[in-house]
Amino acid sequence: MKTKETLIAAREIIASNWTDKGRAVNSNGDIVLPWDESAVAWDSTGAIYKALACDFGADFPIMELQKQFDLDLSVVDEYLGKGEVLSGYDRAIESLSVE
């Protein structure tokens, strides 16, 4: 999966299933790995793992997303709301569209 397509897929995941509690959580709110079958919600980085579906040969577009925030991605979801996270994704996707 290419970088732009990965970001679009990840944005769709967090648009309806976002969490600020960890990379991914299950229905009990327990933190799980992003690719765990029990995961029901993801943070900004966990959604990328989910979108890639563990395709470790694919480009991992963290740097494109990181450029859109003034915070390290490890703390983005703790300090920003869902709307701001989605806006960061939109900016990252748009920046790839103009290149």
Rank of each mutant, 00 (worst) to 15 (best):
residue 2 K to Y: 00
residue 3 T to R: 08
residue 3 T to F: 03
residue 5 E to W: 12
residue 6 T to M: 11
residue 6 T to A: 15
residue 7 L to S: 01
residue 7 L to N: 00
residue 8 I to L: 10
residue 9 A to E: 08
residue 10 A to T: 11
residue 11 R to L: 08
residue 11 R to C: 15
residue 13 I to H: 07
residue 13 I to S: 13
residue 15 A to N: 08
residue 16 S to R: 12
residue 16 S to W: 04
residue 19 T to V: 14
residue 21 K to G: 12
residue 21 K to L: 14
residue 22 G to A: 15
residue 22 G to W: 10
residue 22 G to I: 14
residue 22 G to E: 15
residue 23 R to F: 11
residue 24 A to D: 12
residue 24 A to Y: 05
residue 25 V to C: 09
residue 26 N to M: 03
residue 26 N to F: 00
residue 26 N to S: 05
residue 26 N to L: 07
residue 26 N to G: 07
residue 27 S to W: 08
residue 28 N to E: 15
residue 29 G to T: 14
residue 29 G to K: 07
residue 30 D to T: 07
residue 31 I to F: 06
residue 32 V to A: 14
residue 32 V to C: 14
residue 32 V to N: 10
residue 33 L to K: 12
residue 33 L to P: 01
residue 36 D to R: 05
residue 37 E to G: 11
residue 39 A to F: 09
residue 42 W to M: 06
residue 43 D to C: 15
residue 43 D to R: 02
residue 44 S to L: 09
residue 46 G to L: 00
residue 47 A to E: 04
residue 48 I to G: 02
residue 49 Y to Q: 08
residue 49 Y to M: 07
residue 51 A to H: 01
residue 54 C to A: 15
residue 55 D to N: 15
residue 55 D to G: 12
residue 55 D to Y: 11
residue 56 F to T: 08
residue 56 F to P: 00
residue 58 A to E: 14
residue 60 F to W: 13
residue 60 F to Y: 14
residue 62 I to Y: 04
residue 62 I to L: 05
residue 63 M to Y: 07
residue 63 M to D: 09
residue 64 E to A: 06
residue 66 Q to N: 11
residue 68 Q to K: 07
residue 69 F to D: 01
residue 70 D to W: 01
residue 70 D to C: 01
residue 70 D to R: 01
residue 71 L to T: 03
residue 71 L to F: 11
residue 71 L to M: 06
residue 71 L to Y: 12
residue 72 D to V: 03
residue 72 D to S: 14
residue 72 D to T: 02
residue 73 L to R: 00
residue 73 L to H: 02
residue 74 S to W: 01
residue 76 V to R: 00
residue 77 D to A: 14
residue 77 D to R: 05
residue 77 D to K: 08
residue 78 E to M: 10
residue 79 Y to H: 09
residue 80 L to S: 09
residue 81 G to E: 08
residue 83 G to F: 08
residue 83 G to I: 13
residue 83 G to D: 15
residue 84 E to N: 05
residue 84 E to M: 02
residue 86 L to Q: 01
residue 86 L to R: 00
residue 88 G to I: 00
residue 88 G to Q: 00
residue 89 Y to I: 01
residue 91 R to N: 03
residue 91 R to S: 03
residue 91 R to T: 08
residue 92 A to D: 03
residue 93 I to W: 12
residue 94 E to R: 09
residue 94 E to W: 06
residue 94 E to Y: 06
residue 95 S to G: 00
residue 95 S to E: 07
residue 95 S to Q: 07
residue 95 S to V: 00
residue 96 L to F: 14
residue 96 L to Q: 02
residue 96 L to P: 03
residue 96 L to N: 03
residue 98 V to D: 09
residue 99 E to N: 03
residue 99 E to P: 01
